[in-house]
Amino acid sequence: MNIFRISADLLHLASFFILIFKMKATKSCKGISFKTQLMYTLVFTCRYLDLFHVLGMMITFNFAHITGLTLYNTFMKILFLAASYYIVYLMRTELKSTSDDARDTFVLWHILAPCAVLALIFNAQFTILEILWTFSIYLEAVAVMPQLMLLIETGEADSLSSHYMFAVGGYRALYLVNWVYRYATEPYYSNWIAWIAGFVQTALFGDFFYYYFVKIMSGDAALKLPT
């Protein structure tokens, strides 16, 4: 565990709270891609299946393998799952009338199918858990595509949406730093699957980061994108 990893997780956690706050404060989910949020619930569901294993150990008081890191991870995994499902729930119940589905036109198969095929080919072990974990790593890298398409179509984002995108994009960039740090300081062979996917994920936010920093520098309220 290092400062890069902790700040990455906290930035990721912050992204959930920014989004939930924005949706609750504006009582609207305009400009938010339901498809991207749905993909995130799928990402965390496929990635955190080991939760059942850990929780199983806990309720049977088998604390032999439970370390501080396990507790931290378990706590955060439950938080991430709860937050991402809550967001999808909000978008399909209370805020359904304000949904932007008409403009959320990204075809999900364009990311689901390639990620599934890639996970079957390139994985560390050919087991269900490992393939689902790998699928979640690939999917998370491209899950932001529907949101990016919606953002480009809208042509601009209000400040909370841009802070949300900055947090979601920034957390994986910090994970890249975390992997470099671990590679340099621990007998830790970097998981090249997570590294490449993380790099692609961060790169996808590249142009967004550029416009985000331009907005911050120019003190604009809304983020302007070239339409």
Partner: peptide, 10 residues
Amino acid sequence: ACLEAGHDEL
């Protein structure tokens, strides 16, 4: 295996 690279992270 859980602590295998990347699996001890979120």
